[in-house]
Design a binder for these strands. Sequence first.
DNA 1: AAATAATCCTGCGGGC
DNA 2: TGCCCGCAGGATTATT
Length: 279
Amino acid sequence: MPELPEVEVTRQALSPHVTGQIWVGAVIRESRLRHPVPQELASSDPQQVLQVRRRGKYLVLEMSHGALIVHLGMSGTLRYLTQAVPAQRHEHVDLLFADGSLVRYRDPRRFGALLWVPRPPEVSGAPFWQTHPCFSRMGLEPLEAGFDGAWFYRVTRGLKGAIKPLLLEGRLVVGAGNIYACESLFLAGIDPRRAAGRIGLERYHRLAQAVRQVLEQAIQAGGSTLRDFVGALGEGGYFQHQHQVYGRTGQPCARCATPIVQIRQGQRSTWYCPRCQRF
DNA sequence: AAATAATCCTGCGGGC
DNA sequence: TGCCCGCAGGATTATT
């Protein structure tokens, strides 16, 4: 998908255009996403967009009366348009604003989701939408305080599974999908097959730093555009040109020229350098 | 034509 | 023996 960097790039481009807008409803052309698009979006009461937030790979539009949670699946994008133009194929939903502008959701493979969480009556401390089931079991935000090598080392003691699927899973730390999990492990010099519980403190310092660095650089580069991804203003990312291992089967490692290897871990491809990444 | 940026569910097996 | 957790595999889908 859109992994954390692509979602953050979308959020950053979207936020200045939609924060403060009055949301007046939606056009739903295709409701068959991962979950059916709630029909009440179409005829919602006019309400203000207060904030555009991100949690892991989810975007959250905080509104006066609730929160619209957006997941981009494998192939989803959100575009901000100042006025309606005819919708093309796979452009399933428009969020309409009072001034005639709109946010258009496109998702060819329809693995994404739009969810509505009504705002509860009482004021609570943490954002109200965080209690939604899709955020339970979510790990730390890698770009926020608390994610560091010491923490990573501590929470992985006793884990027998390989480190790469653990990164993908998001149970401990969110945001790295297949691209950025592979890239982070390359930067940290760790073999993706190594059991998480057998990696030492020093290497977890390097891994935490690598995850942060890869995600931050990808955000700066506008994300990775493999096929579908564009930001909220239609701009493609160019971090794919900085990929060191992802998708580079047989090509020479940029550091040591050893051919990059592709393996299979839990139904997903993993790419790594067999020389630079130690077991 | 077999691959894929991501989850979610089910069923099985192992361990306690 | 039984239960629970974790992992493996499949399903979802369009495109090249």
